[in-house]
Design a protein around this nucleic acid. Structure first.
Length: 493
DNA sequence: CACAAGATGAATTCAGCG
DNA sequence: CGCTGAATTCATCTTGTG
């Protein structure tokens, strides 16, 4: 075993995280089962029409490590009737007016679509905006400014939308490849999304900031235009994306990219395509052939007749990693590691439920860590990682993850294992005794023998690598069983 | 040795349709 | 339901090159 076990966190540090054992046990009692339970509760509240922001505040104000749903609901009602918090509906209307739609237009939209259907009202407003103006070409910036957007915000949005706006989900990238100038509706959408992100960001801000926000009048909104390029920015815009030039052939009708794979097309293919297009650009057969190649290899147009594969840094952005997260290893390895990784934003979305539940941080058991997608997501959510036990067989990936850990000045402990098979029940129980248990077990087991592109050994779950799925199950079961024994022990103590 | 390039299909999914 | 056809796929191995 090459486990690298650093010294345990020293007790004397003057940080705001309390490391004493009682606390760890308290945290642990909010076990994964309770998280699931809480998740459902939150979902129910959202169904009832409360905003995430409001629910977060209610959970916080109700207090206690694991408040009863009814108590939270009571706080929610209290909050929603208080004079400070207007109803979510009028809040949205205010927001729409704040976005620059005239009051007249908003009222018109409400009359036409009824008060209830906020989504349709928003859509209607966007189409009004389109009808009222041609909004194409150079006038768009002025139009946006007239609508009330700060100049900088508007020009960033225009720039981003004219490139390609991309929403990435787990390994699949859906993108808007219109290749034309973005319509005003798209740009407004973009700004709206950025504003939503900003609100979410405020909601997920550090606990002390949240407290300040509740007790004091709301601070001035932070502007989008600061620190755009900084690596760890709190306010994250949708990724500035691929598609650098404006050249996009009309016969390439793609509206999305395929799955990010571990191999990419050769530079030779780009040259071949260029040469073919220079000669036979109008030949439908050639066009079809080229589009097929583009689909197969996820090629994007980066210049006239030039279709090229994604660069490693572009994949990093698509997958939600910090810039140059995989720097320092060969191009080939970067593609391989990135092609096998989580989509960070998606993982962060799911893990965000942990944020209000574990203000003091969590202990993570990370299996098949890879380049650390789960940890990057937790870091982005500003959920402190008191402990990460990481299992990753690839040395290249372990190095990448370790540099992330060091570069982000993590204060928790990192314990590395190489192979899941090393991690037997005895080791798991020892770690859980030492650290008070795990709050999160996360990992994606190998897909090699399941992957469609594997022609050689697609042997299913029983395959050499993919069978490690069963080790995941074994470890999860060991953690659960130990956790329930620890709970019993604590109860009778 | 690293690595770029090229060769290597089939299982699975899904929309559309009767 | 089942059928059909099209689209898609967290990849592996050999060979040539430097």
């Amino acid at each position: 075993p090459q486990a690298n076990i650093p010294a345990k966190h020293s007790a004397g540090d003057d940080d705001d995280v309390n490391w004493n054992t009682d606390d760890e046990i308290d945290n642990f009692q909010s076990s994964p089962r309770n998280i699931l339970h809480m998740d459902e509760t939150v979902a129910k509240f959202i169904e009832m029409g409360f905003s995430m922001e409001m629910i977060g505040r209610a959970i916080e104000e109700t207090g206690g490590e694991n408040p009863e749903p009814m108590m939270i609901l009571e706080t929610l009602f209290k909050l929603s009737t208080s004079s400070e918090a207007s109803s979510s509906k009028s809040k949205v209307i205010d927001e729409l007016i704040g976005m620059g739609f005239s009051e007249e237009l908003v009222i018109k939209a409400i009359q036409e679509h009824g008060e209830e259907n906020l989504e349709e009202i928003t859509n209607a407003l966007l189409s009004y905006a389109n009808e009222l103006n041609s909004f194409r070409g150079d006038g768009r910036l002025q139009d946006l400014i007239k609508m009330g957007y700060p100049r900088k915000e508007a020009s960033i949005a225009l720039e981003r939308c004219d490139a390609i706006s991309v929403l990435a989900t787990y390994s699949c990238i859906f993108s808007n490849f219109s290749g034309e100038i973005a319509s005003l509706a798209e740009v407004v959408d973009f700004i709206f999304a950025a504003q939503m992100a900003r609100q979410l960001d405020e909601f997920w801000a550090a606990p002390d900031e949240q407290e300040r926000r509740i007790n004091e009048p709301p601070p001035r909104r932070r502007r989008l235009n600061t620190d755009i390029a900084s690596d760890d920015e709190l306010i994250r815009l949708p990724n500035p994306m691929i598609g650098f030039g404006k050249w996009w052939p009309a016969w390439d009708k793609r509206t999305k990219l395929n799955c990010v794979l571990t191999c990419i097309a050769s530079a030779q293919l780009t040259n071949k395509i260029r040469k073919r297009l220079e000669k036979h650009e109008r030949d439908p057969a050639v066009q079809k052939d080229v589009v097929d190649q583009c689909k197969k290899w996820n090629l994007v147009w980066v210049g006239k007749n030039k279709a090229a594969p994604l660069e490693p840094y572009e994949m990093e952005r698509l997958l939600g990693f910090p810039n140059n997260h995989t720097r320092g290893i060969s191009r080939k390895d970067r593609y391989k590691s990135l092609g096998n990784s989580f989509q960070v934003d998606t993982v962060a979305y799911h893990l965000s439920v942990l944020k209000p539940l574990y203000p003091k941080g969590i202990n993570v058991l990370s299996l098949f860590t890879g380049i650390g997608g789960g940890e990057v997501a937790l870091h982005r959510l500003q959920i402190p990682m008191k402990l990460v036990v990481s299992v990753e067989i690839s040395e290249v990936n372990r190095n990448i993850f370790r540099s992330f850990w060091e570069q982000t000045n993590q204060r928790g402990d990192l314990i590395e294992f190489r192979d899941v098979e090393e991690l037997d029940d005895h080791k798991i129980e020892g770690l859980m005794d030492q650290y008070g248990g795990f709050d999160l077990v996360i990992g994606g087991s190998p897909c090699n023998n399941l992957a469609g592109a594997n022609r050689v050994s697609r042997t299913g779950l029983e395959g050499d690598q993919s069978s490690l799925f069963y080790d995941y199950c074994r470890i999860l079961e060991a953690v659960r069983s130990k956790a329930s024994r620890m709970r019993r022990r604590d109860r009778y103590k």
